[in-house]
Design a protein around this nucleic acid. Structure first.
Length: 337
DNA sequence: CTTTCGCCCTGAGTGC
DNA sequence: TGCACTCAGGGCGAAA
């Protein structure tokens, strides 16, 4: 269940090995992993072989790797991990399991040769070569770590100083000011300095749905999945079906603050792992599963009030909450105006 | 337009 | 031991 923290751990781990590396060969073992690659763009393999990877970028749960210019085309390798995707950095020659879908052979001028193995059990993830289009708000396309202009080369995960600066600092054809076309409709994530809070609050108030559906809507706010939605709602003491249009602005601010806190804490702990489904680029697991307060905690005592956490069916999946801390507003219109 | 829902997919786990 | 069944859920396109 890779969400923003897990995807960022992958991005940060990949960056040193892929930024500046030449793609020497590409092997596709399962065409289904290319389902988001448009044939109109050209052949996936041909588009990659001989190109150089410029950086490792992320917005929400989407990863992309801007490619060196080829015939004036601004393109990137786009990767989504889906439910069970992994991008593993391997030493050439070492066998991978039967779930290997795509392999890139890369050669870095300083670090040498690697295999970038895209492993994906459920094939909800994908790789694609996609065109880069200018961002609609004039800000950087996403988070680039140390590739951000003028940023220090280290501490790429946590330092906000490594985000790219104002739009006028670069020309519009700079890949930093662009985003893959298939990511353009995805909202900025809450850790992005260009995340528009006013717009988010306004959109939330306009919605006529439950809070969790809104948090999971990647066109409203990106990077949040089932785990961090449940954790954020627990932290903010809000029920997952709390009507978005009845949430006071102050409570919405609290919720956004909890979302950020949960995501940052998970990032600091290397992401959440329950099994081998999510690992970093070296195949290691994160530690955030030890910090969960709601997700997967059904039957255990709420760490705030002691009431057993319950699990309820929600959108063909599940929601975990404390029935005492997280209640729906009692009477309709009780908190309106 | 907004919102919801069904589908994609397969290995691991469970129950008989 | 074997087999049928269930479960996990992100993103997207269709339906309401």
């Amino acid at each position: 269940m890779p969400e923003l923290p897990e995807v960022e751990v992958v991005r940060a781990g990949l960056e040193p090995a892929v930024a500046g590396a030449l793609v020497t060969a590409v092997e596709v073992f399962d065409q289904r992993s290319l389902k988001r690659h448009s044939a109109l763009e050209g052949s996936f393999v041909d588009l990659l072989e001989g190109r150089r990877i410029l950086a490792a970028a992320r917005r929400g749960k989407f990863l992309w790797f801007p490619l060196s210019d080829a015939g004036g085309r601004a393109q990137a390798l786009v990767t989504h991990l889906g439910m069970s995707g992994q991008v593993l950095l391997r030493t050439p020659g070492v066998e991978e399991g039967g779930l290997l879908r795509i392999r890139l052979h890369i050669e870095h001028p300083e670090h040498g040769e690697f295999w970038v193995n895209f492993v994906d059990q459920r094939i909800f993830g994908s790789m694609a070569v996609d065109s880069l289009v200018p961002t609609s708000d004039g800000h950087a396309g996403g988070y680039f770590g140390s590739a951000a202009a003028g940023a220090p080369a280290r501490d790429s995960v946590s330092a906000s100083a490594t985000w790219t600066g104002p739009a006028d600092a670069r020309s519009a054809d700079d890949w930093r000011m662009r985003v893959p076309s298939q990511v353009a409709h995805i909202a900025r994530d809450p850790l992005d300095p260009a995340f528009d809070e006013r717009r988010f609050f306004a959109a939330l108030a306009r919605r006529r749905t439950g809070l969790k559906r809104a948090l999971l809507d990647q066109t409203l706010i990106s990077g949040i999945g089932n785990i961090y939605a449940d954790e954020s709602l627990w932290a903010a003491r809000l029920h997952y079906e709390y009507p978005t249009d009845r949430l006071a602005r102050a409570r919405a601010r609290e919720l956004l603050a909890e979302v950020r806190h949960v995501l940052e804490k998970a990032l600091a702990e290397g992401g959440t792992s329950f099994d081998a489904q999510y690992v970093n680029v070296n195949g290691a697991s994160g530690y955030f599963s030890h910090s969960l307060n709601a997700y997967g905690q059904q039957g255990k005592s709420c760490s705030r009030c002691g009431t057993p956490i319950v699990r309820e069916a929600f959108m063909n999946r599940s929601s975990h909450l404390c029935p005492r801390c997280q209640r729906l507003p009692r009477a309709p219109r009780a908190e309106s105006v």
